[in-house]
Amino acid sequence: MNCEKYQDLLSDFIDGSLASQDHHSIEAHLSACGVCAEVRGDLDAIVTYCHEHRGEYDAVPNERALWLRISNLIEAGDLELATDLRTEIPQNAGWWFRLMNRSWQMSLPQLAASMIAVAIIVSVATMIGLRRFGSGGESAGLRSSGVTTVAANGLPLAERYRQQQQTIDYWNQRVELNKARWNPQMRETFERNLNVIDAAVNDSLSHLNQNPHDEVSEEVLNAALNDKVELLREFAEL
């Protein structure tokens, strides 16, 4: 055998999976050939390093944020399941699930009002989630601090609307890319969610057309658009 053939067998040699005859023949060659011995030493160093460091793991860049993504998606999945099976809302269901699920049983005016709550809680959850999530997060105090977050950006309505539309366009593109993979239930759930939100958007827009200073409609519009972003974002990841 030449060096090439010996080197081909070096991994099996190191892993101890050669028949004893081959094993001895390589051993003999290695004691005589410096080149092959060096290759063996290098491969050994790589394998040994890996072996010694087995069980050492990299940390997720942001463990908490990843958990939030996961739990949001799980809850979105619950929603899908629940609207599918028309089951009752389980007691321990999350906020997103409860709110979105409840909204299907509401008339549009009720829905418009609840949209504010949905969007506020969405933003509150996102905001406090990065610090700490899971303690309920729906107290009156948090809700009011949410109001300031939503309204405090102080942008004129038209500018805010434009920015929201840009965000929606972005997520919409991502949704379109993934849509083909969805099953019929997912598609149906998505369309139904979207129709309700769009109805709220159109409703508040037509109110604003009649009365440009209607602050309630302004807030409903803002909330519905935020909610649309949230919906698209959730489904873009499915």
Partner: peptide
């Protein structure tokens, strides 16, 4: 959900790595 979160806490590094 708490139990599931605990499983995440225990194993996320291994999975991610």
């Amino acid at each position: 959900r708490t139990a599931f979160e605990e499983l995440y806490q225990r194993h996320n590094r291994r999975v991610y790595s």
